[in-house]
Design a protein around this nucleic acid. Structure first.
Lengths: 417, 417
DNA sequence: ACAGTTTCCCGTAAATGC
DNA sequence: TGCATTTACGGGAAACTG
């Protein structure tokens, strides 16, 4: 007789890269009366999938059977498989079931565990399987894999609906925005506030009064490119998550990066502020970029906004963001260079906001004179006459923005969630 | 009967990395009368080595037999093995013949090729093998591997003296310096001139009048660390070769980098030159670094030499050397920054020497103001009082240097070999 | 031709062995 | 414990493949 599901708990890997080791663990949740033989567990990949149903087939390269052992802490029987590795089984054109245009990161798989238990003269087959898994072959596919895992977890409780992406459900913006914020809080130490989420909602759904009842399709979230861009919403957002993790973490956690704010909003916020007030914003035109914009007064006393070319991971590798802000200079033809950045929006002195993240000027030993890199922009006269690609903001829009978001509220919202 | 050596030609791989594909080719140099069967060649690794004789054992992972084919161009029979891969055979403590303290890159191996030819009723075993090979497991071992290959080729004509490094011969400096220069000309497009080689000779052998009759031991070349440093002569030299290949190539080929020049010589050369004259020199204290030194006049009108902290590959990744030289600035407390670099030694205007290598200031599209990184040093008063770690040069030494090397001769020697 | 996907392999970091 | 060597795998780029 076959038990449909052996009561176990599986620790994730949710995304597995071929040829890279992973670990998984099975635990028998019921306590058995003492058995006097070893309970051997066998792990297999995609055991139940009919070969025609799945596009790619994989198998476990390494040893896949192991004996269960009593766990110290719980007294349960459990077994941990380490150093497992997946490899694709090349079935030349044969096995490919042309099941619609699913991409590799939409293709769900599972790990299966089997054991045979002899109890009171009966042979009992125990069996369980993992939550759905995404198999990738290169880390470049990780963002797509994460999107699938997120969407699946968000929209179904079914532990093994491997066909989920052949007809993926839509998510409401209220569900989705919560998950997005959670991504940032769990991977970057600080979630997204209401204003930041509103900007994302605008980007994904267009500007509405309220998004919470809007539905977002999987395709719109992850597959379709953003109009005018060459990447999808999630690819863009994940590139920023990655940038934060690798280059902006402490500054992000401190809340010094507003980040998700439209250019229109940015101008509305900076307009009324002291010249030299600036804020940090993620690039919407390029993947994984961050820029800052400061406000000045032009000849007529009107506010003028200047944004620096976005910094990407390569540039931040050469110079961390806090040092960029500390040392940034603008040269207007031969004049002594000047740092135009004075106050982090709304009015925090730059050194107060970023001082703790500055790299201490390392005092090197002697024979050499130390150098550091200073990011400098040249203000050429031609630059001024250059027309902005932003659509000019309508007066009505400006009203809405400024009323909707008083600086005080925004600032308080920026504190840690 | 067994032919000791089948007349063939083998194309190198001289260094093989485990688990990485390589290609090799065997050609039968004698033309056989038409044979009506296929001549099958089998490749094996370290076939003749008694297991006790070698520290590590490897085997060919992939298919190792292939049929010879007539080569279009020559009409010879030949076969090319592609996608061969080596893997270590783990012989648990057993096979390790403890044959002295040879490092992995001193351990020589060989590829063997066998074929059986039936001719006029006789079975003839044909056999040949490759030149000695070094097997490495990580690219970090490549410099050591190259050193072995160089030393072997320099000092023996024996095609299969696999025990060479159990008692390696010494090289004369005249032999060695030629090989070193050849390394630079073949891998970096420009060899080393007499002055550069003299500096290397000094470094390796101490300061003599003439080095050509000096002998250099393998150990001194590659195994012993340079006194006071943590790396050997070759590791240092190879780190520079690598830096040139990856970050300095066009500037090196142009002869803008004197590079191998002692600090003493550098000062002697710059001493008499215009303030603002500079030269580029490879760091002797750190692997893969390049610095520049310029001459100024101090308060008393005496020459003063200032060297910048060496640039390594990470820094050159952020900013190419030519741009560094173009944009380099020194700030002395609040004064307008100034580029102290004016003439490449002996008297070439900076822009004339480096202009063609400058990155054209990319005119980016509008919404952003472009930034570039400017390497800036701060001249702090404390810096001046700091005692130099160089031993002060004796007057006699200075005479020798200046007489030995008139600026004119040196410059002419800098032109392409 | 091309986009999606996989393979290749350097280079850094961590693990392993001696 | 320290050093020598190997393993692991992210990441960029090339190769593959329908």
């Amino acid at each position: 007789e076959k038990q449909p599901c052996m009561p176990t708990h599986l620790q994730k890997p949710l995304i597995i890269k071929t040829q890279v080791q992973f670990t998984t663990k099975v635990r028998l949740l019921v306590k058995l009366p003492e058995v006097d033989y070893q309970l051997k567990v066998k792990t297999t990949f995609d055991k139940d999938l009919p070969p025609g149903k799945v596009n790619r087939q994989f198998f476990i390269l390494t040893n896949n059977t192991k004996v269960m052992d009593v766990e110290e802490s719980t007294g349960c029987l459990s077994v941990e498989f380490r150093h497992l590795q997946l490899k694709e089984r090349k079935c030349p054109t044969g096995g490919k079931g042309n099941e619609g245009p699913l991409s590799v990161t939409e293709e769900l798989h599972s790990l299966n565990f089997e054991a045979m238990l002899m109890l009171q003269g009966l042979d009992i087959d125990l069996e369980t399987c993992s939550l759905p898994l995404v198999v990738i072959s290169n880390v470049s596919q990780l963002p797509g894999g994460w999107a699938s895992v997120m969407w699946y977890n968000l929209l179904t409780d079914d532990p093994k609906n491997l066909a989920f992406f052949s007809n993926p459900l839509r998510a409401s913006w209220s569900q989705l925005s919560e998950v997005l914020s959670w991504q940032f809080s769990s991977f970057a130490g600080r979630g997204l506030n209401k204003e930041q989420l509103n900007m994302l909602g605008d980007k994904l759904l267009g500007q509405h009064g309220s998004y919470n009842d809007c539905q977002v399709s999987w395709s719109k979230f992850c597959k379709e490119v953003i109009p005018g861009k060459s990447f999808s919403f999630w690819m863009w957002l994940d590139s920023i998550l990655d940038l934060i993790k690798k280059h902006l973490l402490p500054v992000w956690i401190d809340g010094c990066i507003m980040g998700f704010v439209s250019k229109e909003m940015e101008r509305a916020l900076l307009k009324e502020k002291e010249p030299g007030t600036f804020l940090l914003r993620f690039s919407e035109s390029h993947l994984g970029g961050i820029t800052f914009t400061w406000v000045e007064q032009d000849e007529n006393g009107d506010p003028k906004f200047i944004s620096v070319e976005p910094y990407t991971k390569n540039r931040l590798n050469a110079l961390p963001i806090a040092d960029i802000i500390r040392d940034y200079k603008v040269i207007a033809d031969g004049v002594v260079p000047e740092n135009p950045l004075n106050f982090l929006y709304p009015d925090i002195p730059k050194d107060e906001a970023f001082g703790k993240h500055y790299n201490s000027q390392q005092n090197k030993v002697c024979p050499y004179i130390p150098t550091h890199l200073v990011p400098i922009s040249h203000r050429v006269p031609a630059q001024h006459s250059c027309s902005s690609p932003e659509p000019p903001m309508s007066p009505g829009m400006y009203e809405i923005i400024t009323q909707h978001l008083s600086p005080f509220e925004f600032e308080s919202a920026m504190s840690s969630p």
